[in-house]
Design a protein around this nucleic acid. Structure first.
Lengths: 178, 178
DNA sequence: CGATCGGTTGATATGAATCAACGTGCGTGG
DNA sequence: CCACGCACGTTGATTCATATCAACCGATCG
């Protein structure tokens, strides 16, 4: 479990390409289904300073049968991971660059807001454009252009570790998947 | 659970686009994590004649605590669903059209082989090019071109509900994600 | 002070989408 | 039995979105 800071879970290809599967925020499990496995099938990297706690599989399994709360938390994490992957899959398979980036931001905003006080739509946001690129399957250069467009159209500003959302409605229209 | 025939699970967008999340073969659960939820977050459609059995959530939950085999089957299904989504996500985010299609075929081949006797590398294969397109995020036209290329290069033939693999090694090289 | 990193911008190349036409097989209704 | 419509696949011409290549800028850091 990530206790403090930001990290991300990703899958690495032999030739250096990588797909970011999920951005981890405080309270997130690296991956709930891992409880049922012997080995990890992904990598994790810190984005900021982090604090982490580890549990042994056997310990978790024991507490899972003993404590319905633990069981519920694991189940919930499996469910949300599945939903998130479904949405990301749909975004990658069906959406344009603008839609994908908008979708990523819309996905992250409430998760950030659940852990920080947000004033004037200004979200702490430590991702580099490279990370956005690796998450939505674009090049960093193109991410820069799309963000430039968003800025020009007064949808948002993104710099210096902060995201400021100016026109949330329009961003929603672009990235909501509905 | 799908008992006979082929189907697929997908996510539908308002404007008609859809992302195929998984092809279902006999023995597959539609989605294991659904046990922990109240509503479905996906659609399912048959590709061929199918037979299906349903279970009520409460029944499954009961049998899950009672019978460790049932529990194990659910857990395994969660795990493989997660792996499959991870791989598909990586393919969609990082790979070219050829790689994606090769990857899809490589993913399906062992699953088909586990349920059918395969002679001379000839797999039953009821997907239309439209389904391949919706699964890997391409247009049917482009799928046709790529398959044409594969045929020309003597990698495989695909027609009339059957896939014949001619050069498995080369297909592997294209689509293995490693 | 130079080196490095992250981001921006311009020019160009390329992979995939789009538009359109055509062929073929098949089921259906006359 | 035939004519038609329709689903599916193929192919060619063209367009468009995104990648690639390259230069540059500012901030940061040793």
């Amino acid at each position: 479990m990530l206790c403090a800071g930001w990290a991300f879970r990703y899958f690495q290809l032999a030739d250096g390409r990588r797909q970011i599967l999920k951005f981890l925020l405080p309270g997130d499990l690296f991956s709930a289904v891992t409880i049922f496995e012997r080995t990890f099938h992904f990598s994790v990297k810190a984005l900021t300073e982090v604090q982490v706690s580890g549990f042994s599989r056997s310990e978790i399994r024991r507490r899972c049968v003993a404590d319905p709360d633990v069981q519920g938390a694991i189940a919930k994490s499996c469910v949300t991971d599945t939903h998130e992957m479904t949405e990301l899959l749909t975004a990658l398979g069906q959406c344009s660059a603008e839609e994908r980036i908008a979708h990523l931001l819309l996905h992250l905003m409430p998760r950030i807001a659940a852990r920080n006080v947000i004033r004037e739509q200004r979200y702490p946001f430590p991702l580099r454009q490279q990370h956005i690129a690796d998450a939505v399957g674009l090049t960093p250069v193109h991410v820069s252009r799309v963000l430039g467009l968003f800025r020009e159209r007064r949808l948002l500003e993104l710099s210096e570790g902060h995201l400021r959302v100016i026109n949330a409605a329009e961003l929603e229209r672009l990235g909501s998947l509905r």
